[in-house]
Design a protein around this nucleic acid. Structure first.
Length: 669
RNA sequence: GCCAACGUAGCACAGCUGGUAGUGCGUCGGAUUUGUAAUCCGACGGUCGGGGGUUCGAGUCCCUCCGUUGGCUCCA
């Protein structure tokens, strides 16, 4: 038998007889498997049982590594499928991939209930305990078809993915097997520590016109402890959910009688929003923006020119029609579809709730003759827009039907694009940094080189794309280029953050636009005395106040920094004879612009603390005889720490300074 | 929009196979006047998401609409 040279991660080279398995090499080197579930051989993931026939480089893949977790999840998806088929013999497994935080498997079967998961989980554990070996088997096309003869979904995959004439592999565990390329863990015993998290539905191949499948989601970890930890984290994440905290902290309300996806900002939430808007406003002024105000509606004609109507009719609220016209049309027996057609053709006019602020801002630009000396012109507005999101998509504050963008439109010359894009993203960065949001990524959306859907000259596109790239690269955070993700009217930079349950949300965006200036025939006079076309940049560093606040609530878990928190000080009296002093302290704080709430009720101090801590004020101020006599306050912080008898003036000075500095955390206790 | 589950007082929940609604917190009233995570007593509060049906009788079963949640699809 021939010998092969196997290069190890540390650079050492061992010689083995050809045909040795990954597992044997790893055990030979380490004396044990050391938690490896698979191996990386010359850059390819392989099973532990994979035989090495040629000289190669090898490295073990540990279960807890990213690649290892992926394999663990994938194998657990198989385990799930086997369990489901054993319990429901008519269920047909379709696909079951690993995903970021776990895995899922889709089955063609009768709908399941959440409560059925328990039995399935039990079955999975039973199979895991059988410790079945996962065996890779290569089959030719005919054999594959024979193995999956009763499963049309697998046959379809064989048809499409495997291709005519070629074979593929299956993985067998006990008497069950699945079509799969692997790799997998060596045996089902590695998959003990899993949990099924939810059951929902999905379409076969994500196609709405095809069969509805039952999707089961689950998670898995290499050890019991890790599973416990992950479950604990999931519980913690649930507590931070902005929908729950928003209710508990009285930040916003959604009322079904008002409408789905329409946020009512209650007084406490409104403070947070106002503070954020003030904060952005300061930076807008510094960066040379002009603030404008525009109404919530505009004529259909405006949106015909901009292109929003009727091309995006599906995602807009239906147009508003003047009442006399409506009456006349209705007397004439005009049907809804006729009305809709008349609107499309422009034969009748109406108004639209604005889906975007840009047309209004364009009109402000166009209201005067502009010169190159005026550019860039930067128009900013907290503009509320309305979009008809699909009902199933609406969620809390993060996906809504009416929202306020921290919007601005910059009208610039071609040469100014780079510098202005940079200015926009610097603003985003300043704001994210101040709020401690460091876990975000940047996506640069570029043209799909094969598509012709884009408007504007390719050379200009190229320059704008380059400007976006350079701007993104200058940020010093993770960024990626994504071809085909540009808007049809220009390249863009998106800021994406994760919420506590791992969902990613696009917040800020900066988009270059060649289209609207063209459609509205915008011009400026250049130094050459000729008229030129400006370029527009759309930007919204927070995306929308609704979504941003939703994400912020989760980011801070409801414990906002002093400058943002709705009530900064809760004054609690020891007994009712301290009410006068409490009012004195409150007045002093309010004079200094500090938001205060007093509780001078007849509850015990313990009870008051318990009540008020639920609202997470920056500080609780406890006032009794001692404080009243010496004109001091005693503080209690969020973590329960206490400081007694701080002179009132000193406290006012310190908290004011903390607020002015927009400190990340209350730090006076 | 599609699939599934869910929808009981302001909030969190209980209510078995149909017999006509309970608990805790909150609120209000009374007592208490308290020094750092629940003082005691009492009261108010629900046409059980809306509408329709089955039944002698429905929070409990069926239909339908609305909403919420988890996914899918979509997102200028």
């Amino acid at each position: 038998m021939s010998l092969i040279s196997v290069t190890l991660p540390d650079g050492n080279v061992n010689e083995y007889a050809a045909g040795i398995t990954c597992s044997e090499v790893i055990i030979d080197v380490l004396g044990k498997k050391n938690g490896c579930v698979a191996a990386m051989v010359d850059g390819h993931e392989r099973d532990m049982s994979y035989q090495l026939l040629d000289s190669c480089m090898i490295e073990g893949i540990k279960a807890e590594s990213d690649a290892g977790m992926y394999i663990l999840r994938h194998s657990t998806a198989h385990l799930l499928a086997q369990a489901v088929v054993e319990l429901y013999p008519n269920a047909k497994p379709t696909i079951g991939p690993p995903v970021d935080r776990g895995f899922y498997y889709d089955f063609a079967m009768e709908p399941l209930l959440e409560s059925d998961l328990k039995a399935i989980h039990k079955k999975m554990q039973e199979i895991a305990r059988r410790n079945l070996t996962l065996e890779r088997v290569e089959l030719d096309e005919a054999e594959l078809r024979e193995h999956f003869a009763s499963n049309p979904y697998k046959l379809e995959i064989i048809e499409d993915k495997v291709g005519a004439g070629s074979g593929s592999t299956i993985y067998r565990q006990g008497d069950w097997y699945d079509l799969c390329l692997g790799p997998h863990v060596p045996s089902t015993g590695k998959l003990m520590f899993c949990k099924l998290t939810s059951v929902s539905s999905a379409y076969w191949r994500g196609d709405q016109s095809r069969e509805q499948l039952v999707r089961i989601y689950g998670i898995v970890e290499p050890t019991k402890d890790a599973l416990k930890q992950t479950l604990h984290k999931m519980e913690e994440a649930k507590k931070r959910d902005h929908r729950k905290l928003g209710k508990d902290l009285q930040l916003f309300h959604i009322d079904e009688e008002v409408g789905q996806g329409l946020i009512l900002w209650t007084p406490r939430g409104a403070i947070i929003r106002q503070e954020l808007q003030n904060f952005i406003g300061e930076h807008l002024t510094r960066q040379g923006y002009s603030q404008v105000f525009t109404p919530h509606i505009g004529k259909l004609d405006l949106y015909r020119t901009s292109g929003h109507f009727p091309y995006y009719q599906d995602s807009q609220y239906p147009p508003l029609v003047e009442k006399d016209l409506m009456r006349k049309l209705s007397e004439e027996g005009c049907s809804c579809s006729e009305l809709s057609n008349l609107m499309k053709t422009g034969d009748i006019d109406g108004y639209m709730l604005k889906p975007m602020n840009c047309p209004h801002h364009v009109k402000i630009y166009a209201s005067q003759a502009r010169s190159y000396r005026n550019l860039p012109i930067r128009l900013a507005e907290f503009g509320t827009v309305y979009r008809w999101e699909q009902s199933g998509e609406i969620s809390g504050m993060t996906r809504v039907r009416g929202f306020t963008q921290d919007d601005a439109h910059l009208f610039v010359t071609e040469e100014q694009i780079g510098q202005e894009v940079l200015g926009c993203i610097e603003l985003v960065q300043i704001i994210f940094e101040k709020l401690g949001m460091v876990d975000y990524r940047v996506r640069v959306g570029l043209r799909d080189p094969d598509s012709t859907k884009y408007v504007g000259d390719p050379d200009r596109w190229h320059k704008a794309e380059q400007a976006c790239r350079e701007a993104a690269a200058s940020l010093g955070v993770e960024w990626s280029e994504e071809e085909g993700e540009a808007a049809f009217y220009g390249p863009k930079i998106d800021f994406v953050v994760k919420d506590v349950i791992g969902r990613e949300w696009q917040l800020g965006t900066v988009q270059v636009d060649y289209n609207l200036p063209e459609r509205f025939d915008l011009t400026y006079k250049g130094s050459d005395g000729e008229l030129h076309r400006p370029v527009m940049i759309h930007r919204a560093p927070f995306g929308s106040m609704e979504r941003f606040c939703g994400v912020l609530i989760e980011h801070f878990a409801g414990r906002f920094p002093t400058w943002l928190t709705p009530t900064q000080c809760h004054i609690l009296t020891i007994s009712q004879k301290h009410t006068d002093y409490a009012n004195h302290v409150a007045a002093k704080l309010k004079e200094n612009g500090i938001r205060v709430e007093i509780d001078d009720g007849d509850d015990t101090i313990g009870k008051k603390i318990r009540t008020h801590r639920k609202l997470h004020p920056a500080y609780m101020i406890i006032l009794g005889d001692g404080e009243a006599e010496s004109n001091t306050v005693s503080l209690r912080g969020r973590n329960g720490d206490q400081i007694a008898d701080i002179p009132l003036d000193e406290f006012v000075r310190d908290i004011c300074s903390e607020i002015t500095k927009k400190s990340a955390k209350p730090s006076l206790v």
